[in-house]
């Protein structure tokens, strides 16, 4: 039964790919939100659906970045065992970027407003 197996038997690569991709997706949302706020031209470029404005592009591209990175990382690591500590550090760093760059006072601080 898979529930009683340990990851000594199951390579952790598929899980690591999902963890890192989730971090990358969250970081991408933050970076795009900041970019769209800081640059008028980027804000307009991200306006995929006018009723929702820039947010539509931020989230559409953010989800695409997440899914593509998950697909690529999973293909690369699915049968391997990778160093989970490094993956976690990177994933949590991207997650922190996602939180910080969506927080308007921090965005304003970076833009010198």
């Amino acid at each position: 039964m898979s529930m009683s197996r340990t990851t000594d038997e199951i390579p952790n690569g598929a899980g690591a790919a999902a963890v890192l991709a989730a971090g990358i997706g969250c970081g991408a949302i933050g970076i795009l939100a900041f970019w769209g706020d800081a640059s008028d031209s980027m804000g307009k470029a991200l306006n995929f659906y006018n009723p929702s404005g820039t947010l539509s592009g931020v989230t559409t591209i953010g989800i695409l970045v997440w899914l593509v990175s998950w697909f690529v990382l999973n293909r690369t690591w699915r049968d391997k065992t990778v160093a989970m500590v490094k993956i976690n550090v990177a994933a949590f760093a991207f997650l922190a970027v996602g939180f910080l760059l969506t927080f308007p006072p921090f965005m304003d601080l970076l833009q010198g407003k």
Partner: peptide, 30 residues
């Protein structure tokens, strides 16, 4: 913006939990 972090994070959590089950107890970093 921040609301969108939740479904991405929870999708990963559900996938990893369903894939590894109790096995996630072994590598504590997972």
């Amino acid at each position: 913006h921040v609301a969108w972090l939740a479904p991405i994070a929870m999708t990963m959590v559900a996938y990893v939990t369903m894939k590894y089950g109790r096995a996630i107890t072994r590598p504590r970093y997972m």
